[in-house]
Simulated scan of single mutants.
Amino acid sequence: MYRHTLSDRVQFADTDMAGIVHFSNFFRYMERVEHDFFRALGMSIWDKSNEIPVEERVGWPRVHISCDFKAPLVFEEEFTMELLVEEIRAKTIRYVIRFWKNNGELCAEGKLVAASVRRDPVTGKMKAVNIPERIRDRITVAPAELLALPQIG
Score class of each variant (00 low, 15 high):
W60Y: 15
R39P: 05
S44Y: 05
E55M: 05
R28I: 13
A142T: 14
M43E: 14
A90I: 12
F37G: 02
V10F: 06
I52F: 00
R62N: 09
C67A: 15
W100A: 10
L149M: 08
R98M: 03
M126R: 13
L83Y: 02
R3E: 05
T140A: 06
T80G: 07
A108K: 04
L6G: 08
D36L: 00
T123L: 07
W60P: 13
S66L: 07
R119P: 01
D36H: 07
V113K: 10
Y95V: 04
A114M: 14
E34I: 08
V74Q: 12
V63L: 04
P121A: 04
E86Y: 00
R134P: 00
G19Q: 04
M81C: 13
W46L: 15
P72R: 02
M30K: 01
D16R: 10
V54H: 05
E77L: 03
R62M: 10
N103P: 10
D14V: 04
M126D: 11
F75I: 12
I45F: 06
A128Y: 00
F27R: 04
V74L: 06
G19Y: 02
F12Q: 12
R118V: 05
A18C: 02
G19M: 06
P143L: 12
M17V: 12
S49I: 04
K125F: 00
L83G: 08
D68R: 11
D120R: 04
I131Y: 07
T5W: 02
K91A: 15
L149H: 11
Y95C: 01
R89V: 01
R57V: 05
H22Y: 14
V54N: 07
G124K: 12
E51D: 15
V58K: 03
R3Q: 10
R94L: 13
L73P: 02
A71C: 05
E77A: 08
T123R: 09
V21E: 01
M17F: 09
R98K: 12
I139G: 02
F79L: 09
V10P: 00
E56V: 03
D14C: 07
D120H: 05
F69Y: 15
D137Y: 04
F27Y: 15
G124Y: 07
V113G: 10
E87A: 00
E133L: 12
V141G: 03
F79S: 08
V129M: 05
L73H: 00
V21M: 02
V63D: 04
H64C: 01
E76L: 10
W46P: 00
I45G: 15
M126E: 03
K70A: 15
P53T: 10
T123F: 09
N130D: 12
F37M: 08
E87K: 11
F23A: 14
W100S: 09
V10Y: 01
T5A: 02
L149A: 15
K70T: 14
A18N: 12
W46K: 12
V113F: 10
D68G: 12
